[in-house]
Amino acid sequence: MKNKGSEHNKDECKKARMAVKDTLDILGGKWKLVIISMLRFGKMRFKELSREAGISPRILSKELKELEMNGLVSRTVKDTRPVTVEYALTPYSDGLEELVNAMYKWGINHRKKVTGKE
């Protein structure tokens, strides 16, 4: 990648590609950013997430496990009958706020462009 005012540097380009690849490895796919954006407004139960996002329980379970494994989501089991499980974003996920906001803004503008509606 070329930085403003500097010559093309293969090492910098390689680092940039690796950083983007690492980000996509953790956040890629159809649902992870949807889940993260939903949890930005507070804790949610498994069934709430599944219903509101339109994700099958099997896929949601897989995605949540991966997000939890990467330190972005926490899982809390409540001692209720029946057992309740809540998911929330971790402080580590705060670093994604700028990315999620940028994607939101871009998505709004893109939808306007392709639908012709303001």
Rank of each mutant, 00 (worst) to 15 (best):
K78G: 00
E68W: 04
T84L: 06
E98P: 03
C13M: 11
A19Y: 04
K30D: 07
V73C: 03
A19H: 07
I55M: 05
C13Y: 12
E63F: 04
L72R: 06
H110F: 14
R40D: 01
V83A: 14
R75F: 01
D25L: 04
D22H: 10
C13L: 11
D22W: 04
S6N: 13
K65R: 13
P91Y: 11
A102E: 13
K112A: 09
M1A: 12
Y92Q: 12
E97W: 02
E97K: 07
N70R: 04
S74F: 06
T76L: 06
E86G: 01
A19N: 09
R40M: 12
S56A: 07
S6I: 06
K2W: 04
L64G: 04
R111K: 08
K10C: 04
D22F: 05
L33Y: 02
P82M: 02
E97Y: 07
L60D: 00
M38Q: 15
D22C: 12
K2Q: 08
E68C: 11
E68G: 09
Y104G: 01
M69D: 10
S6A: 12
L49F: 02
E118A: 09
T23Y: 11
N3T: 09
I59K: 08
K43C: 03
G71Y: 07
V85P: 10
W106D: 14
R111A: 13
S61Q: 13
K113T: 09
F41G: 10
V77W: 01
Y104F: 15
K4W: 05
K2G: 07
E66R: 13
K112M: 09
R75M: 12
L89G: 00
G107I: 02
Y92C: 04
